[in-house]
Every structure is written in structure tokens, then in C-alpha cells.
Design a protein around this nucleic acid. Structure first.
Length: 194
DNA sequence: CGTTTGATGCTCT
DNA sequence: GAGCATCAAACGG
């Protein structure tokens, strides 16, 4: 595999709408498992009706209001975890939801973690699926992904997108559903939905 | 195919 | 008590 350069914290200390497309094509490493980010959604903080931060800081959203480069992991529907990368400056609650990855390493571990996935293409093609595949749960909330930990990080491996990101509305929202803040690699088969 | 529904528990009102 | 940034199985055509 090509060299992996961990992303800088300052590269993430920008609005979610900027770092969402920036994160496409980057590599997310969790232990021996890794995948390339192919689909994300931007959540733009206090004034975004679709964001958990819309009604201000709560115990759950505290991490999102913190500094860039940490994971905001939340539990939903009584059984699923989803992971965001926190961006922006402290207090801005900028976040980017990781919605789909193209598996790169640790496929056997991912398959074991997702026994219900019939095909490899289904391992990480959804926000809760990728958390299951990578073993991400509430223990990862607040974890630093650009702090130099060799077992958990976001990196650039030199991959270049062949085309500009595809843009659409975000998925599964009841508020803010009209905003075109979802970004994905159109040609990648691991995207959750067309 | 596409659409509907059940699972399951946390978070905030 | 209502709703949830979801998933997989069941159902209908």
C-alpha cells in the first residue's frame, strides 16, 4: 500500500461543508482494518436544522462542540452507532458523517464483524454498517483521529478523485432534508444509495 | 424489482 | 412519551 500521511488537525479546522468533500478519498484506519471514504454528509452546527447540534450543546453532542480531529460517535435506533469527524473551531459543532467506505484492509475481520453482510460490497455501505465492520462503538466517542495514534487515524495515501464529488441531499433526515450536503464518489460501488 | 415494517434503547422534552 | 443522521427481513407485484 502507498504511504499514509495522517491528516493535519488544521486541515480539519474548517467548516463541515469544506471538509466533507475534502475527506472523500481519504483512508480511515482502525486497528488492522481500513477503508477509503467514498460517501459523507456535512452537518453545519448550531444553525443546521438537520444537526444534533441544532438545539445547542447537550451531554450527547459535547464532543461535536469540541476541537477538530475527534470522532463524534452516537447511538441510534436502539442498536446502531454512527461516526462523524469533528471539524471547525471549538464551539462551532462542525461535523462530517462517514456514510460509506470502500474496504481496503482487514476484510476477514470486517466479515466476522458483519455476519449478515452477504457480499463484501455490503460491509461498509452505510453509516452504521461501517461502524459495525470497523468495530466502532461508544468507546470511540471523542477519540482523536489525527493525534498520531498508529491504530486509529485518518490519512491521505495520494489517491486522487477522477471526477468532482457528486452532491445530493442528506439521507434519513426529517429536518434540513432539502439541503444538498451529501457528497459521494459517483463511480464507486460502495456508496450506500444512488 | 420496490415498498413496508419490526427491532430496540437512548436522548431530550 | 416521541422521535430517531439505520438495517435487514418480509411482503407484494
Amino acid at each position: 500500500m502507498a504511504d499514509l500521511e495522517i491528516l493535519s488537525r488544521e486541515s480539519l479546522a474548517r467548516p463541515a461543508l469544506e471538509i466533507a468533500p475534502f475527506l472523500l478519498g481519504k483512508v480511515f484506519v482502525v486497528g488492522e482494518r481500513a477503508g477509503r471514504i467514498v460517501e459523507v454528509e456535512a452537518y453545519a452546527g448550531r444553525h443546521d436544522p438537520g444537526s444534533h447540534a441544532y438545539r445547542g450543546m447537550t451531554p450527547r453532542t459535547e464532543v461535536m462542540f469540541g476541537s477538530a480531529g475527534h470522532l463524534y460517535v452516537y447511538f441510534t435506533y436502539g442498536m446502531h452507532f454512527c461516526a462523524n469527524v469533528v471539524g471547525g473551531e471549538v464551539g462551532e459543532a462542525q461535523a462530517v458523517l462517514l456514510r460509506a467506505l470502500a474496504p481496503m484492509q482487514g476484510l476477514p475481520e470486517m466479515r466476522a464483524a458483519r455476519p449478515k453482510a452477504k457480499r463484501d460490497i455490503d460491509l461498509c455501505n452505510g453509516p452504521a454498517k461501517l461502524c459495525q465492520a470497523l468495530g466502532i462503538d461508544r468507546a470511540f466517542n471523542g477519540a482523536d483521529v489525527v493525534g498520531g495514534d498508529q491504530r486509529l487515524f485518518l490519512a491521505d495515501d495520494g489517491f486522487v478523485l477522477r471526477d468532482p464529488p457528486m452532491v445530493s441531499t442528506r439521507i434519513g433526515l426529517s429536518a434540513g432534508a432539502d439541503l444538498p450536503w451529501r457528497f459521494y464518489i459517483e463511480t464507486d460501488p460502495h456508496v450506500s444509495r444512488r
